[in-house]
Design a protein around this nucleic acid. Structure first.
Length: 506
RNA sequence: CGGGAUGUGGCUCAGCCUGGUUAGAGCGCUGCACUGGGGGUGCAGAGGUCGCAAGUUCGAAUCUUGUCAUCCCGACCA
C-alpha cells in the first residue's frame, strides 16, 4: 500500500520482520509483548507478568496431566553436594562444564570497603543443573522393598546451567522447569513410563500450544548424559530450525547403581531399581513465540492465553457512561460462556489512552480476540471483532458473537495448529545424497531463512560427524512413526535400517 | 578460552578522525490544548558531565595508557 508511506507508523508492529532478521525479530517480539527483559545478571532474565501468566497456564495444564497419570509433586534442594555429581561418570561429563559452584557461606568486609567471601565450605555445593543425583540419593533411602515401588514424583523448580551463550527463554543461565523422577521395579515398567510421559508432552504441545511435534529417540551422541534412551519432542520454528521442546529419559539402572537404589523383590533377591526422568522448561515459551507469532507481535493459542478476549470501549466524553455500561454487560455475557471446559477469560481495557495505541498494545501481546464497541455498534447491535490471525476486523452481531465465542476460540486454536503443521510439512524433505544434503542446508546469506527438516537414511552416526559439524546440522531424532523403510545411507551408501530427522537446531 | 566491536539522559544513537563558549537528536516520560473507531497534532517541560582511573594539554566526550563491563563470531548446550 503506497499510502502507508505517508504515515509515520511502520507497516508492521515489529521491526525487523521475520524475513529481514529472525533472531532480532524474536527479541523484539518478547519486548513488544512485555514477556520478559534482561536482568543485571548475565544470562538471567526477568519474566514479567504477561510472560509469567503464560508460564502459569503451562504449569497448570501440565500439572493436571501429571496428576492424572499418577504423579505427585515434591521439592528437593537447590544445592547438591559436589560428590554426588561425581558418582555417575557420564553425567559428570555432561554437566560439569556448566555448573555454578558455591564454595563459601559468609561475606565479610574487605580492606577496600567492599565484601569478600569467607567461611570456606568443607565440600563445595553445586547449584542443581538437574536433580537426578540428589533425588536418587534420597530415593535410595526410601526404597527397601518392591512394595515401595513405583515412586512417581515431579518437582517444579529452577535450575542453573552456566551457558556461554544465552537467548531469552530458549537458553538462559537460570530457567524454570519441571523434572519428573520415577523409580520402578522392572525395566519394562520404566520404559513404559518414559513413553507415557513423552506422550503427555506431545499431547500438551499439540493440543494446548497448537504446536505440532515429532516424537522420536535421540541418537547415542545426542542422548542425555547417563541415559540409556532419550525420547524427545521436536518442533519446527518459523525459521525452519528445530527446537527440542521436551525430553523423557529411560535411565536404566545407571543412576540406581550409582546411587544404590536397591530393593528386595518378591522372590527375595536384592535388585537395582530402574529409573526415569523427564522435563520441560520455560523454553516452551520460546517455542510458543517462534511457532505462531507474526510481524505484528505475539500470537497466543487461546488455550494458553491469559486473556481470551479484550474489550475496548470507544467513546467520547458524553457517551462514556452508556458505552461502559453496555461493555460491562457484554463482558458478563461473554464470561458466562465456556471454551475448552473453562469460562471465557474477558477483560475490559478502559485506560485513557488513544484507541490506536490501545489496539496495537493488545495485538502485540497476542490476545486472541479484540472487541471494539462504540455508540455506532450499540445502535446497530453489533461489535467490531478482530481475531489475532485475521488481517481485518469485522462487524458482527452481538448476540451471535456471544453465542459463538467458544467456537471462535476453538477455530483459532485449530487454525494456529494447522498453519504450523503446514509450515513444517512444506519444509520437510527426504534427502538421498550428500549433494542434496549440502544443498538443502547450505547457507544462502546472512538473514536468509533456509533449510528445514530432512529425512535421511543413515548407517553410522559417527561417520556423519564431520559433515554435520561443517554444516551445523544435527540429528534431531529417530522418529517413532513413518520410519519403517529400509534404504541406504545418504553419505556412505551403506545399508541403513532407519531414517532420522536432520535439521539445524536451537 | 581464541577472533572482532562497543561503552554518551529510561531506550536507540549522533558527536570523537581534524581537542575549545551552557553536550545533541529520535523515541519514551510529565503537563496543557486540540483531537477522538485508531498507535494523531501543537505548545511547554523533566532528565545526561559523556563506563572507570590515570596521563598529555591553557582546555578532553573527543588524544594516550590502563582497567572494568557488555555485545557479536567461534568451541559447548534444555
Amino acid at each position: 500500500m503506497r499510502g502507508d508511506r505517508m504515515s509515520k507508523a511502520p507497516r508492521t508492529a515489529i521491526s525487523p520482520t521475520r524475513e529481514e532478521n529472525y533472531p532480532e525479530w524474536y527479541q523484539q517480539v518478547i519486548r513488544a509483548a512485555d514477556l520478559a527483559e534482561n536482568s543485571p545478571v548475565r544470562g538471567c532474565m526477568v519474566i514479567k507478568p504477561w510472560g509469567y501468566q503464560l508460564w502459569e497456564n503451562v504449569q497448570r495444564a501440565l500439572d493436571d496431566m501429571f496428576k492424572a497419570t499418577g504423579h505427585q509433586n515434591a521439592y528437593f534442594p537447590l544445592f547438591i553436594p559436589m560428590s554426588y555429581l561425581e558418582k555417575e561418570a557420564e553425567h559428570v561429563d555432561g554437566f560439569a562444564k556448566e555448573c555454578a559452584v558455591v564454595t563459601h557461606h559468609r561475606l565479610e568486609p574487605d580492606p577496600d570497603g567492599g565484601l569478600r567471601p569467607a567461611g570456606k565450605l568443607e565440600e563445595p555445593l553445586i547449584v542443581r543443573p538437574t536433580s537426578e543425583t540428589i533425588i536418587g540419593a534420597t530415593y535410595a533411602k526410601w526404597v527397601q522393598s518392591y512394595r515401595d515401588l513405583p515412586i512417581l514424583i515431579n518437582q517444579w523448580a529452577n535450575v542453573v546451567r552456566w551457558e556461554m551463550r544465552t537467548r531469552m527463554f530458549l537458553r538462559t543461565a537460570e530457567f524454570l522447569w519441571q523434572e519428573g523422577h520415577t523409580v520402578h521395579a522392572t525395566s519394562e515398567e520404566a520404559v513404559e513410563e518414559t513413553e507415557k510421559m513423552v506422550e503427555v508432552y506431545r499431547d500438551f504441545a499439540e493440543n494446548w500450544m497448537a504446536m505440532p511435534v515429532i516424537v522420536g529417540s535421540k541418537t547415542p551422541l545426542e542422548r542425555f548424559p547417563g541415559a540409556v534412551e532419550t525420547l524427545s519432542i521436536e518442533a519446527m520454528m518459523q525459521d525452519r530450525k528445530a527446537l527440542q521442546a521436551g525430553t523423557s529419559h529411560f535411565l536404566g539402572q545407571n543412576f540406581s547403581k550409582a546411587q544404590e537404589i536397591k530393593f528386595q523383590s518378591e522372590s527375595g533377591d536384592i535388585e537395582f531399581a530402574w529409573t526415569t526422568s523427564w522435563g520441560v522448561s520455560t523454553r516452551l515459551i520460546g517455542a510458543l513465540i517462534m511457532t505462531h507469532s507474526d510481524d505484528d507481535g505475539l500470537v497466543l493459542p487461546p488455550r494458553l492465553a491469559p486473556t481470551h478476549v479484550v474489550i475496548q470501549p470507544i467513546y467520547k466524553d458524553d457517551s462514556r457512561a452508556e458505552v461502559m455500561e453496555y461493555v460491562q454487560s457484554l463482558r458478563d455475557e461473554l464470561a458466562a460462556q465456556t471454551y475448552a471446559n473453562a469460562p471465557v477469560r474477558v477483560t475490559i481495557d478502559d485506560r485513557d489512552i488513544r484507541g490506536g495505541e490501545k489496539k496495537w498494545y493488545h495485538v502485540k501481546r497476542g490476545v486472541p480476540i479484540r472487541l471494539e464497541v462504540g455508540p455506532k455498534d450499540m445502535a446497530a447491535g453489533t461489535v467490531f471483532c478482530g481475531i489475532r490471525n485475521q488481517p481485518k476486523s469485522v462487524g458482527i452481531d452481538r448476540a451471535e458473537l456471544v453465542a459463538t465465542i467458544g467456537e471462535k476460540l476453538a477455530t483459532l486454536q485449530q487454525e494456529l495448529f494447522d498453519a504450523a503443521l503446514k509450515m513444517r510439512e512444506d519444509n520437510t524433505v527426504e534427502l538421498k545424497s550428500e549433494a542434496e544434503f549440502r544443498d538443502f542446508f547450505a547457507d544462502k546469506g546472512d538473514t536468509a531463512i533456509t533449510g528445514g527438516f530432512a529425512w535421511c537414511h543413515y548407517s553410522d552416526e559417527d561417520s556423519l560427524q564431520p559433515l554435520l559439524k561443517e554444516l551445523k546440522v544435527t540429528i534431531r531424532c529417530v522418529p517413532r512413526t513413518d520410519n519403517a523403510t529400509e534404504g541406504t545411507c545418504f553419505l556412505t551408501g551403506k545399508p541403513a535400517a532407519q531414517r532420522a530427522i536432520f535439521a539445524k537446531a536451537y
